[in-house]
């Protein structure tokens, strides 16, 4: 009985592994097809503009809310900590580094993973379930070029200004809290920010935007394209897209910081 159980487990693991490898292979080919279709961007410029509005302009409120929240909280908590060491004047320096290098891009990435990624997964999943993607292929249109490439181009373009906006809103809210909560003179706060920021701090932060754009768009779109099993299947693929892309955003955030900071 134990032997049967072990054999069954072995079989299940082997099947899972085979499935995982096949999915990775499909994802790789899907990504390659998306990048190969980049020359068609001129043909689908209207779709790129539509997607830029969805992932860019329409995402501004959620990016602002998250950036302002984290900037304010960071200023309050770090300010309290620095006050214990009598180093409150360093508040600008510490919050600016945290916001520009890490928290600004990371929060933006997570928010867009939830907002833009879920929209991609649900929309493309519904299209897959209702055979609209098959219809595109059946009538001679490449669904990856028509549906995925414009999303990726739009994300690559719009994630950069959104990162800048997230950084700006985070810093402004931190400055506001420094002045009104910690009674720190704005001149002291900003003086600790600007002269001390190095180019590598911006490179770390802004390099994350295209990396997150690629991860979120490709993972959520691939999951949408892979949706099976009716409306419940669309739900499953959407959730999977958000969970996987959020996880990958967190991992990529760490590695981009590590690689850039070690090499610049």
């Amino acid at each position: 009985m134990l032997l049967t159980f072990v054999r069954n487990r072995e079989k299940a693991i082997a099947l899972w592994l085979k499935d995982f490898i096949l999915t990775m292979q499909e994802f790789f080919l899907f990504s390659v097809r998306t990048f190969i279709s980049f020359p068609k961007v001129k043909r689908y410029w209207r779709d790129v503009l539509d997607q830029a509005t969805i992932c860019g302009t329409d995402s501004i409120p959620i990016v602002l809310v998250s950036a302002i929240s984290i900037g304010s909280l960071l200023a309050i908590e770090v300010g309290n900590l620095l006050e214990d060491f009598g180093a409150k004047t360093m508040l600008g320096r510490s919050t600016s580094l945290s916001v520009i290098r890490e928290l600004g891009p990371l929060l933006m990435g997570l928010m867009l993973s939830a907002r833009f990624g879920s929209r991609n997964g649900a929309e493309l999943g519904a299209m897959q379930i209702s055979e609209q993607i098959d219809a595109l292929r059946a009538f001679g249109t490449d669904p990856v070029a028509k549906l995925v490439m414009p999303r990726l181009v739009a994300a690559l373009i719009m994630f950069l200004p959104l990162t800048a906006l997230s950084d700006y809103a985070g810093l402004q809210s931190a400055a506001y809290m420094a002045e009104h909560y910690h009674r720190l003179d704005p001149g002291i706060f900003w003086n600790a920010v600007y002269p001390r920021l190095a180019p590598k701090d911006f490179v770390v932060g802004f390099l994350k935007a295209p990396v997150f754009a690629i991860i979120i768009t490709l993972v959520s779109s691939f999951n949408g394209f892979s949706a099976r099993g009716g409306t419940a299947g669309v739900g499953r693929s959407t959730i999977k897209g958000i969970v996987v892309s959020s996880g990958l955003v967190l991992i990529a955030n760490f590695y981009v910081s590590k690689i850039v900071l070690e090499n610049m």
Partner: peptide, 15 residues
């Protein structure tokens, strides 16, 4: 494929 037209069971119209 452009030589053939296809009518899907669920119509597959773009909603």
């Amino acid at each position: 494929r452009r030589k053939m037209g296809m009518v899907f069971q669920g119509n597959a119209l773009f909603d």
